[in-house]
Design a protein around this nucleic acid. Structure first.
Lengths: 183, 183
DNA sequence: CTTACATTTCAGAAATTTCTGAAATTACTG
DNA sequence: CAGTAATTTCAGAAATTTCTGAAATGTAAG
């Protein structure tokens, strides 16, 4: 069956956006379609809805499974595979962030440490920059690990604290607002 | 002149990673090279160091300028353009995050609002999911705006608070640790 | 204004990625 | 265990992206 205009627009948008991410258009479209579908869909349905080949659907679904972004379901009396996205949006976001970190950040951290271990190469500037970059990434991944540990409820609270965050930080660190200029 | 092994490895790594981001290999390499170079480089130097065509360098630099990731400098008595990355790593990160938000998040937020404005389309589930997604993105961008407003010093403090964050949130929101299970 | 250099543009070539249809594989059913 | 349905694999086709060399444009100095 053809998509409703709403589905159509939503799916096409995520197809386009997909390319700005690391994923391709089709994968973006499949995910978008699953995301707004109330029921699990099988590969055949997706293929028809998006007007792509059956094998392309298969590859796209496999990629999404590699990202841990889809759930496989089975309906009684039907041996086809059905796919859904988690109901809980927070779960989706957590997965997305975790996977992007794994693919985009972790390999770089590994490489930087490796370069540092290779010892002094006689270029102080480059070595200092690499060390600085590694330290920053370590700080950020450390913070990320904290956030990941927080249950959703607290995470929401933190994100909606609004302007009170600065004061909180100052109190927590026993320091009063500094007079330094911004940034 | 050829790159030192350290530069070589660093540059190649960021070339590879570039593709996992939205940027292409060459752009990643150019940026990496500028990043670990203590002095500003001109297009000719970059071209030679990376073994690419002069026009490719030009395009890569233009793209990096579009991302606000490089600074243009001029040396007295030399009319070529010289390029650098900011000394302050935090500034680089801020720019990167801001640009990615602009390209990856904002257009989606706009599209979701647009879809909602088009009014009920008779698919309650899809409409609810779109609304939910929009709300989540709004919350996250709101939080991001807070973070962006913080001067670096406070940001570092926040990121290095470690395990004390949960308690802080609870205190700030006047609630004690809940008994709900994680996530 | 002319010359000399520097940079950008752009059409086509090269490389890479994505997509398809056919064949192979897997796995359920009777 | 034979037959059928579902899925995956994969080689080549199609599409897209990236890169190059040549030409065009810009720019500063004499």
């Amino acid at each position: 069956m053809p998509l409703t205009p709403l589905h159509q627009e939503f799916v096409l948008h995520f197809g386009e956006m997909g390319s700005r991410w690391g994923i391709n258009r089709t994968v973006g479209q499949i995910y978008a379609l699953l995301f707004i579908s109330s029921e699990p869909l099988n590969a055949e349905t997706i293929t028809d809805a998006l007007g792509i080949s059956r094998s392309n659907t298969s590859m796209g679904l496999k990629e999404l499974q590699g990202w841990n972004l889809v759930r496989l379901k089975h309906l009684p009396g039907d041996r086809r595979d059905y796919f859904t996205t988690p109901d809980d949006l927070w779960e989706i976001v957590r997965t997305l962030v975790a996977e992007r970190k794994k693919r985009e950040i972790d390999p770089t951290l590994t490489k930087l440490r490796e370069l540092e271990l290779q010892g002094p190469a006689g270029d102080d500037y480059a070595e200092a920059r690499i060390a600085e970059l590694r330290e920053m990434i370590e700080m950020m991944t450390g913070f990320y690990a904290e956030m990941e540990r927080l249950e959703t409820e607290r995470l929401v609270k933190l994100m909606t604290l609004g302007g009170r965050i600065a004061g909180l930080i100052d109190k927590a660190t026993g320091l009063f607002p500094t007079l330094t200029k911004r940034n």
